[in-house]
Write a protein that binds this DNA or RNA. Sequence first.
RNA 1: GGAGGGGUGGCCGAGCGGUUGAAGGCGACGGUCUUGAAAAUCGUUGUAGGGGCAACUCUACCGUGAGUUCGAAUCUCACCCCCUCCGCCA
Length: 422
Amino acid sequence: MLDVRIVREDTAKVIDALKKRNYDPSILDKFLKVENERRELLRVIEEQREQRNKISQEIAQLKREKKDASFVLDEAKKIADSITEEEGRLKVLEEEGMKELLVIPNIPHESVPAGKDEAENIEIRKWGTPKIFEFQPLNHWDIAEMLGIIDFDRASKIAGARFSLMKGMGARLERALMNFMLDLNTSKGYKEIFPPILVNRDAMIGTGQLPKFETELFRISDPEFYLIPTAEVPVTNMHRDEILNEKDLPIYYTAYTPCFRREAGSYGKDTRGLIRQHQFNKVELVKFVKPEDSYDEIESLTNDAESILQKLGLPYRVIALCTGDLGFSAAKTYDIEVWLPGQEKYREISSCSNFKDFQARRANIRFKREGKKGTEFVHTLNGSALAIGRTVVAILENYQQKDGSVLIPEALRPYMGAEVIT
RNA sequence: GGAGGGGUGGCCGAGCGGUUGAAGGCGACGGUCUUGAAAAUCGUUGUAGGGGCAACUCUACCGUGAGUUCGAAUCUCACCCCCUCCGCCA
């Protein structure tokens, strides 16, 4: 959520940001209109309340002196009625305003390249060299099926399309990656968290999934809960409605969770294999930092995610998302894309974002500076480190051998208890 | 699922419907005392929004939301959360 003050007083800047994101700037019109009415009305109401409070004091005084108060009482009654009525109108305006404000996206940082869609994202750096195979490398689903470590047919029997079932060394690989990533992240100072994966509506609003992206989430009713699409949601919301101490910042968390996504609107995309699933595992990094540090922190967070790929020996590139491709809540995002020999393409395996105060404002996460009055919103960041299903894909495809077996990356062998999957 | 208890400021903990933004204590900060520290003592100590150059001032907030009232932390209703006991359960 943007600072209402900025929307009101620096409207041009917000319009500019919306245009860069391919949003229609007229979404601001209604908000601004409602907001002005709200402020005007609030002013009137506060004046009336002041009057009412004064009269109430008078009544109290008269009663204490056992004097007759009926005259002032009439007047008080009139004001009270008027206030009740105006407050009703105020509430409507507040709700309308909030409804509008919650669907306005974050303002991209000035360092974010301008562009209308993913074609205009900028490659920042590359690591590793895609291996030249002396045979035609296979897709991961072919490899996995031959090795008998993933069973898509049975997954679809028991759940449906876009689900997978790991078996034997496949299941072991999934678990090994989880532990490997968590161990590496915690060794860098991230505190391990294992949060609820069902959350309430307020949590989803806090990180920006709701109200705009309802159709991308799984929801259960009775009682109402949402399945998290990423650990970002529960972990960021840990500090909702809190005032943190300056000395506690920065806070670094890492969390493994299953993630659930409807993938509505992606029919026909990545229908085979592990790339796009309704349920997948992911290890996430989340940071709470002081505003002045957040752009350094996104660099180090991205580096931390990259280091996992380096340890696994998987070639990747880092790209900066352009303004048109940036997510709703993000001010800046780097995607890390891993090389997939089966597709001869780099594919997203991590997304690292700085949300600045956008989520903090929605979730009301503040901090207090030592010796300073008042509070400020923290900046929040997060990134995958990494999406586990896609890491499995990358390992199977990059480490496949001519005989159909798959070598285990060195760093993972202690976790796998094996050097190769045959 | 059944029965009961409870949610007040950073924390603990009071609070006859009327100067209660909220006693008291702890903690924190500042001063005095002390060579220094402790002890003692005095003072300060919530958040947000509005108005004013400023001193300052107004409004709201005692789990959440509705209601009663001129006036609600205090009364009524609904909901949420926490705790205890019973039942059930991985």
